[in-house]
Each structure stands twice: as structure tokens, then as C-alpha cells.
Simulated assay, not measured.
Amino acid sequence: MPIYEYECPKCGRFDVLQKMSAPALEVHDVCGSKVTKLMSASSFAFKGSGFYINDYGGKNPGAITDRSKDKAESKPSPCASCPANKSAA
């Protein structure tokens, strides 16, 4: 069940654990004041298999690396094969 946040003019903000199908509260049970339902950010956590760290990362910590550096170092510079560089050498 999700937790909904409400605001009471007398008591301030409070949380209520409600079913999604339950109607929104209209009156605060504690003081009897009219309440308004607030929009708040939800949070969640990925658990179990099927996520990157668990399944795709591999057991080797070196498996997750930036390979773009290796590719850049293995390529010759564009001017290394230039005829102008051969004549200057």
C-alpha cells in the first residue's frame, strides 16, 4: 500500500498508509480539520536479478571500464601517414 501525504491547517503535514482504491481523506482524524492531499515524489528500489549491477556487470570489477580510451590510443594519429611528415623527417 502506498503512503500518501496530507496537509492539515492546524497540525501540519502528515502521512497516511492507504490503498490506491481508497478515497482521499477529507478530514483529519486527530483534530477534525479539513485536509488537502499533497503531491510528493515517490521512491522505489530495484531488487532481484535482471538489473545491470547484478547481471550485466560480470563478476570481474574490471569488466566495467571505459573502452573508448583504449581505442583512441591504438589508432595512429591522422598525420602519421601524411606524405608531408615523411619528407620532413
Rank of each mutant, 00 (worst) to 15 (best):
K19F: 13
M39S: 13
D55G: 01
L38T: 00
D70H: 08
F51L: 03
Y52T: 10
S74D: 14
A24G: 04
S81T: 08
D55Q: 06
G32C: 05
I53R: 14
D15F: 04
R67K: 12
G48Y: 00
E26H: 06
M39F: 07
E73F: 05
S74N: 09
Y4I: 01
P23N: 08
I64H: 10
Y6N: 00
E7C: 00
H28D: 05
G50R: 01
I53F: 07
Y6I: 01
R67I: 09
A72L: 13
I64M: 10
C79Y: 13
F14E: 00
N54S: 12
A22I: 02
Y6K: 00
F46A: 13
S87M: 06
A22Y: 06
A89V: 06
M20I: 11
K86S: 05
A63Y: 10
G58F: 04
K86I: 06
S21P: 00
V27N: 05
P83A: 02
K69N: 10
G12T: 02
P2K: 09
C79E: 15
Y6H: 03
P83F: 03
K47H: 09
G32Y: 10
S40D: 06
K34C: 07
A72W: 05
Q18L: 11
S77K: 13
K71V: 13
D55I: 02
S21R: 12
S43N: 10
N85G: 02
S74H: 08
P78Q: 04
A22P: 01
F44C: 09
P76Y: 02
T65C: 12
E73Q: 12
G32A: 05
Q18S: 04
G57F: 02
E7Y: 01
K47G: 08
E5W: 05
V16L: 02
S21N: 08
T65R: 15
D15Q: 11
C31D: 14
G58P: 00
N85A: 15
S87K: 15
S43F: 07
E26K: 14
S42W: 07
P23R: 07
A80T: 09
E73K: 15
A45G: 08
P61R: 09
N54D: 15
T65H: 14
K59T: 12
M39E: 15
A89Y: 04
A45Q: 13
S43I: 06
K47C: 05
A88M: 11
C82A: 13
A88L: 07
H28P: 04
C82W: 11
Y4M: 04
V30I: 11
G50S: 04
A63I: 00
T36E: 10
T36I: 14
D66I: 03
S77N: 12
E73N: 08
S68G: 05
C8N: 02
P23E: 10
K37R: 15
Y6P: 01
A80C: 06
A72D: 14
Y56C: 14
S40A: 13
K86N: 04
V27L: 10
S68H: 08
S68R: 11
F44M: 09
M39N: 14
F51E: 07
G57I: 01
P9G: 03
C31L: 07
S87Q: 10
H28S: 07
K75M: 12
K19A: 14
Q18M: 09
A22R: 04
F51D: 03
C8S: 01
P83R: 09
L38G: 00
K59D: 12
S40E: 08
K47R: 12
P76W: 03
I64Q: 14
C8V: 02
G48R: 03
D15V: 03
S68W: 05
